[in-house]
């Protein structure tokens, strides 16, 4: 089985601060990590390989430093890594990114494509579904369990607001996964050593023969007008005293300020 896992390198949001003047992320000195949801995608890919055989290819688009994220994916059990890196890809929005990735994935071959449900920096959850659309294959989003894969079909449970749906699809398929699907393993020593030696395949826009007006800034209809930090919620107020006193204070506070 040819399993492709799409990953994104993101800033570690537990460390990210926002510049109050420019309202942009302060990226300096912030560690880059694999998007946490993508760790579940890698783990599920590796589990599928362990069950059905085949190989897991991780793919990402971004600058050279994304190699580190790809190597980490190898240490977690992936077999091969592809980095789509080219100035022409820079500035791509989710539409252009998913188009470029779909062309890269077309080159590697695929039966199952797995993505994390969304990235923690952009939070759009659009790239996975976009890839499926560009490849014209079915997609199952928010998968929390793969029930079975056989006879060219997949049966999966996908999370919805209240409960879950069981969806069947033909292969090839793209799924996006939620964190309920598994518990990602930690890197192994053998994996880490393999990761160090693994050659990362670089793919450029030339290699894909892709229409350059459809990638990068030119291919991105999304226009970011402004990025800002939502105002912080102000802390609540706790009234103390007897029930009568508290109720009286609450009513007067509501009358004075809110109503």
């Amino acid at each position: 089985m040819n399993i492709v896992v799409c990953i994104k390198q993101v800033p570690d949001t537990t460390e990210v601060r926002i510049d109050p003047k420019t309202n942009t992320l302060i990226r300096e000195g912030v560690a880059s990590i694999i998007n946490p949801f993508d760790l579940y995608a890698i783990e599920e890919g590796v589990r599928l390989k362990e069950k059905f055989g085949g190989k897991v290819t991780v793919i990402s688009m971004g600058p050279k430093q994304v190699e580190n994220a790809l190597r980490e994916a190898i240490s977690l059990g992936a077999d091969e890594a592809v980095l789509m890196s080219d100035r022409a890809f820079a500035g791509s929005d989710t539409l252009a990114t998913s188009l470029a990735l779909s062309e890269g994935i077309r080159k590697t071959g695929f039966d199952v494509i797995i993505c994390g449900k969304q990235a923690i920096d952009g939070d759009t959850a659009q790239v996975g579904p976009g890839i499926a659309a560009h490849l014209d294959i079915p997609q199952i989003t928010y998968v929390k369990k793969i029930e079975s894969i056989n006879d060219g079909k997949i049966l999966a449970e996908r999370m919805v607001e209240e409960g879950y749906e069981v969806v069947e699809s033909t292969l090839p398929v793209l799924i996006t996964v939620v964190k309920e699907i598994n518990e990602p393993r930690l890197p192994s020593l053998k994996g880490k050593m393999k990761a160090k030696k693994t050659e990362i395949k670089i793919i450029t826009s030339e290699d894909l023969g892709i229409d350059k007006t459809k990638i990068g800034l030119d291919g991105s209809p999304t226009w970011v007008m402004k990025i800002f930090t939502p105002p912080k919620k102000e802390g609540g107020k706790i009234f103390e005293g007897s029930t009568e006193e508290v109720v009286a204070k609450l009513v007067s506070e509501l009358q004075d300020n809110l109503i």
């Binding site: 930690l186 890197p187 192994s188 020593l189 880490k192 050593m193 160090k196």
Partner: peptide
Amino acid sequence: TEEQLMIQEICDKIGKEKI
């Protein structure tokens, strides 16, 4: 060595996250 640093890193992760 590089391998020894990896051992340290892996055990540290296991310690912090799992132990």
